[in-house]
C-alpha cells in the first residue's frame, strides 16, 4: 500500500479545502452552527472508528471522555485562568494528551473483556463518569454545571469554533489514515479479524489496542473541549450524554466502520438531515420519524455502510470487466 497517492491527496485536499472555505462563503449563523455540529459528530465518529472500527471492539463509552474533555476546558477557565478568546483552543492538544494517557489504565481493565461484554463495560464507564460529574461538586458544580465565559471574537462568532472542530476532524482523519497504512494498522485489523490468531502470530494485541484507544479517547476529549467552550455551560447530563455517543456510532455504521471516509460521510448525511428535520417538523416531533426514515433507507440500500457498499459495487463492476485469472491449485503449481 502506497503512503500517498495523487488521487488521495487531491481528495483530502479538496474536501478539507472546501470545508475550510465554507464559513467564509456562508455567513448565516444558524447554517454555520449546523456546520459546527456536523464537524463535531464527524470528528467523534472518526475518533470512535480509530479504535472500534479498526479493532472490532464496540465502545459505547467514548462520551465519557467527551465530557471529561469539556470539563477539562471548564476547569482551565476556573482554576488556571487561561483567558478567553482563542487561547482555550491552544490548550486542546494538552487536554487530549492528558485524557488519552489517563484513560489507558481504565482501558487496560476494560479490554480484558470482549464483544458485547466490552460494549456493556464501556457503557457503564459512561454512566460512572456521569455520576461523578453530578457528585464531584467541588470540580464540576454538580447539576448547576460549569459556566464558561463567553468569548469575544473579532469575526463571526461561530467561525472559530467551526475551524477548531475542522482542525480536530482533520487531525483525526490524518491519524486514521496514517494508522491504517502503518504496521500498527495492520496489527489492529488482524485483531479485528481474529484476535486469537493474531496472538498466535506474535502480535502484541494488548499494546496495539491500548495505543488505538488512547488516540481515539484523546481526540474525543479535544472535541469535547471545543463543545464545552462553544456552549458556555457544561452540565453532566449533556456533557456525558449517551445519545451523543450513540449518534456518533450510528454515523460510523452508516458511513462504513473501519473505513477512512465512512464515519465522516455518515455524519455529513445524518447531522444535516437531523437538523433539517428538526427545523421543519420539530414542533410536531415528526422530525424523529423523518430522521429515522433517512437512516432506515440507507441501511436497506447499503447495509454494510455507504463506503463499503459503494466500494463493493465498483469492484464487482471491475471484476466483471476483466477475466479472472486461473488460480486453481494443482500439485505442480503448489509444489513447484
Amino acid at each position: 500500500m502506497r503512503w500517498i497517492t495523487p488521487g488521495g491527496l487531491l481528495r483530502g485536499g479538496g474536501v478539507f479545502g472546501l470545508l475550510a472555505a465554507f464559513p467564509f462563503v456562508e455567513r448565516t449563523d444558524w447554517i454555520v452552527n449546523i456546520g459546527v455540529f456536523t464537524l463535531m459528530y464527524a470528528g467523534l465518529a472518526t475518533a470512535w472508528n480509530l479504535f472500534s472500527g479498526y479493532t472490532g471492539y464496540i465502545s459505547l463509552g467514548q462520551a465519557a471522555f467527551f465530557g471529561i474533555g469539556a470539563y477539562a476546558t471548564g476547569i482551565t477557565f476556573e482554576h488556571i485562568s487561561i483567558g478567553s478568546g482563542y487561547r482555550p483552543f491552544y490548550a486542546l492538544p494538552l487536554i487530549g494528551l492528558a485524557v488519552g494517557l489517563v484513560s489507558v489504565p481504565v482501558a487496560w481493565v476494560a479490554l480484558r473483556t470482549r464483544a458485547m461484554t466490552f460494549a456493556i463495560v464501556t457503557l457503564m464507564l459512561l454512566f460512572i463518569v456521569q455520576q461523578l460529574a453530578f457528585n464531584l461538586r467541588s470540580i464540576t458544580h454538580g447539576s448547576q454545571g460549569v459556566a464558561v465565559p463567553q468569548p469575544t471574537f473579532a469575526s463571526n462568532f461561530d467561525r472559530p469554533y467551526y475551524l477548531a472542530m475542522l482542525s480536530v476532524l482533520a487531525l483525526a482523519m490524518l491519524i486514521c489514515w496514517y494508522v491504517r497504512r502503518s504496521k500498527l494498522g495492520l496489527m489492529l485489523l488482524g485483531i479485528r479479524d481474529d484476535e486469537e490468531k493474531a496472538r498466535g502470530l506474535g502480535v502484541r494485541v494488548t499494546g496495539a489496542k491500548l495505543i488505538a484507544w488512547a488516540l481515539s479517547v484523546g481526540l474525543t476529549a479535544m472535541i469535547g473541549g471545543i463543545w464545552g467552550y462553544y456552549l458556555f455551560s457544561i452540565y453532566p447530563e449533556s456533557a456525558v450524554d449517551p445519545l451523543v455517543m450513540i449518534g456518533a456510532v450510528l454515523m460510523a455504521f452508516l458511513g462504513g466502520k473501519g473505513t477512512l471516509w465512512g464515519p465522516m460521510i455518515g455524519a455529513f448525511v445524518l447531522v444535516p438531515a437531523q437538523q433539517w428535520a428538526l427545523t421543519s417538523y420539530g414542533a410536531t416531533r415528526l422530525y424523529l420519524i423523518a430522521y429515522a426514515g433517512v437512516f432506515v433507507l440507507v441501511l436497506l440500500l447499503l447495509p454494510r455502510g455507504i463506503v463499503p457498499s459503494l466500494a463493493d459495487l465498483v469492484s464487482r463492476r471491475r471484476f466483471r470487466a476483466t477475466d479472472r485469472p486461473d488460480v486453481r491449485p494443482t500439485v505442480e503449481r503448489v509444489a513447484s
Binding site: M1, W3, Y178, R180, R181, S182, K183, L184, G185, L186, M187, G190, A198, L201, G202, V203, R204, G207, A208, I211
Partner: peptide
C-alpha cells in the same frame, strides 16, 4: 506480513 515479528519502534512504519 502480520506474522512478521515487529519490534515496537516499527509500528509507525509503513505496513508492508
Amino acid at each position: 506480513v502480520v506474522a512478521i515479528q515487529q519490534p515496537w519502534r516499527t509500528i509507525v512504519c509503513r505496513a508492508i
